[in-house]
Computed example of a mutant assay.
Amino acid sequence: MWRLIKFLFVLCVLAAIAFVGYAYLGPIFMPDDFAPPVQQVVEPVTLGVDG
């Protein structure tokens, strides 16, 4: 039982290291995955002017 708990703990630690590495190194090696989607939005605006 102790082996299973130890294995799961080590697996969680490695997963955490992988996530942090992906967050820090991802934009350097995979910039397209971290780029925000760019889309032009055109909306008509009606100003309420009293007069």
Rank of each mutant, 00 (worst) to 15 (best):
M1V: 08
W2L: 15
W2I: 15
R3K: 08
L4K: 08
I5G: 11
K6L: 15
K6Y: 04
K6H: 04
F7C: 05
F7L: 13
F7K: 10
F7Q: 09
F7G: 01
L8R: 15
L8V: 07
L8D: 08
F9G: 15
F9Q: 06
F9H: 04
V10W: 01
V10F: 08
V10A: 06
V10M: 04
V10Q: 00
V10P: 00
L11M: 08
C12T: 11
C12G: 12
L14Q: 10
L14R: 04
L14T: 10
L14M: 14
A15G: 02
A16Y: 11
I17N: 04
I17H: 02
I17K: 07
I17Y: 03
A18T: 05
A18F: 14
F19C: 13
F19L: 15
V20M: 08
G21D: 09
Y22I: 01
Y22D: 03
Y22N: 08
A23V: 01
Y24R: 13
L25N: 04
L25R: 04
L25I: 01
L25W: 07
G26W: 03
P27F: 07
P27M: 04
P27H: 01
I28P: 00
I28R: 15
I28T: 12
I28W: 09
I28A: 09
I28M: 06
F29P: 01
F29G: 01
F29Y: 10
M30F: 14
M30K: 12
M30Q: 10
D32C: 00
F34C: 00
F34R: 02
P36S: 11
P37C: 02
V38M: 04
V38F: 02
V38L: 05
Q39R: 13
Q40T: 04
Q40I: 00
Q40A: 01
V41E: 13
V41S: 04
V41I: 15
V41N: 05
V42R: 07
E43P: 00
E43N: 11
E43L: 15
P44A: 06
V45D: 02
V45L: 09
L47I: 11
G48P: 00
G48W: 06
G48A: 11
G48I: 07
V49E: 12
V49Q: 13
V49N: 10
D50M: 04
G51Y: 03
G51A: 11
G51V: 10
